[in-house]
């Protein structure tokens, strides 16, 4: 089992005034195939931690390695390239382009990471097939239900075959039945070998996860 995420005393301070320490001395190791839920109250630093793990943001202290690469040494452009290839994002507000079909939305996940143009369509179709939307590939998002839109977003995240799938409140905009279906999909993806990290305050999500990490006021503790 190789290590996907290695956080060592990571901190993230937003310069003030007043300076805010959103994450303090976070230490966490996530191995390949893990399914980690990050829970905590609003404003506890969950999203900041997720941004750092997803290379959208840099730590102001400590050391973070993603699949063995120290992100502290990377340039802005290299950080973007690393995200594009190693990390898939699923957001609470799906972030789908309304004027493009489901297939085109998934292809955007492959646009910047050097996937050859002719392979993109097949990879995007496979990803949509994987999330159970093979019959809706030409639909624009506005003709899809909330659960289907989130499935398109998940397909976009997994299409480049990332090392890590990061989900920020993936069920926050969905009803409980639809949420359960999405969580079932996450279980399947984990069974396929994908590593998942899900930020949530939904107890149902953390029940599906193998590990649960709690953050309170920027301090992280792993629940047993």
């Amino acid at each position: 089992m190789s290590v996907i995420v290695e956080l060592d005393a990571v901190r993230r301070t937003f310069p003030g005034p007043p300076a805010v320490e959103a994450v303090r001395d976070a230490t966490l190791t996530v191995e390949e195939g893990d399914y980690v839920a990050v829970v905590g109250p609003s404003g506890s630093g969950k999203s900041t931690l997720l941004s750092i793990v997803g290379c959208l943001d840099r730590p102001t202290g400590g050391r973070y390695e993603l699949t063995g690469i120290d992100v502290g040494e990377l340039s802005d452009g290299e950080l973007a390239a690393l995200r594009g290839r190693r990390v898939g994002f699923v957001f609470q507000a799906f972030h789908l382009l309304q004027h493009r079909s489901a297939l085109e939305n998934v292809e955007i996940g492959l646009l910047y990471n050097q996937t050859p143009r002719r392979e993109r369509r097949a990879m995007a179709e496979a990803a949509l097939e994987r999330v159970g939307l093979g019959h809706r590939i030409e639909f624009p998002p506005r003709h899809l239900s909330g659960g289907e839109q989130q499935r398109v977003a998940i397909a976009r995240a997994i299409a480049p075959r990332p090392s890590l799938l990061l989900c920020d409140e993936p069920t926050g905009n969905l009803d409980s039945k639809t949420s359960e279906a999405i969580l079932g999909l996450f279980d399947e993806l984990q069974a396929d070998g994908l590593t998942l990290m899900v930020v949530t305050h939904d107890p149902a999500v953390s029940r599906h996860a193998r590990r649960t990490v709690e953050i309170v006021d920027g301090v992280m503790a792993e629940a047993s």
């Binding site: 973007a80 390239a81 994002f89 972030h95």
Partner: peptide
Amino acid sequence: VGEIGLRRAVGAARRH
């Protein structure tokens, strides 16, 4: 702005 954020998340650099 949201689209820009998404493109950055899936690997677009500032120049893109």
